[in-house]
Amino acid sequence: MKKLSVRRRHPLAALVVLLLALAATGGLYATLAPADEAQAEASAQSLAIEEGKKLYDVGCSSCHGSGGQGSSDGPSLTGVGAAAVDFQVGTGRMPLQQPGPQAEEKPVVYTQAEIDQLAAYVASLGPGPSVPNESAYDPSAGDAARGGELFRTNCSQCHNFTGQGGALTHGKEAPALDNVDPRYIYEAMVTGPASMPSFPNSTLPEEEKQDIIAWLHAVNTADSPSPGGLGLGGFGPVSEGLFAWTFGMGALIAVAVWIGARTAKARKS
């Protein structure tokens, strides 16, 4: 203590206290203030955007333009949002294999991490729908009955009663929805890929989207119950009629041939 008491009147003492105080404030600020964290995340984000841009330049820019502005071969990506990228690339529709009526589903070529980077880059081009949280598309939280009504009002005219898919003009189609990851169903509703109209939250609120996903989960997944037996594709009377003509009538004619060949006379000889 003697040392301290001797030096506390030192002309530089005030300066030392000031430095200590500044260091403490700065240290506290550095540890407690959120600004720094944001900066760190921003740098991670900018890293993702940067990586995404690299992937984009290689895989997408030939059609969508070097800055996502679009070209004669592909639409502009400004404002389509991360959800559109996650849907199109995550289901294998993009990158396109060849021009045609509609992007076909193919094996996915990017990892989920790469897809997220691409999504980050495209999202940076303009504000758009982002990838939904898992809670938004959890089928168990939706009301299937209500979802069924919404589905029949908004979706079944193209996708069929239970989402078995349907034909559109000139080779385009509304794809089958069996066993599609609920996340992609949700993203499709938000972004409206290909010929599909988009259903933003202002027209179809989040919980109604969840109801629709719950309906599809109840009637069109590998583990949905099928009380009547084989589903015959769920296409309705066309496949039923085909079945009746082939298997039904085929079996009955086989039986008729058998009975017809079995006469009393034939047994005697």
Partner: peptide
């Protein structure tokens, strides 16, 4: 799975029996 009839709703694959 077809739902009740409502005049405002319709589905694709709507065909009569064969």
């Amino acid at each position: 799975v077809l739902g009740p009839y409502r005049p405002d709703q319709v589905s694709t694959n709507a065909q009569p029996d064969w």
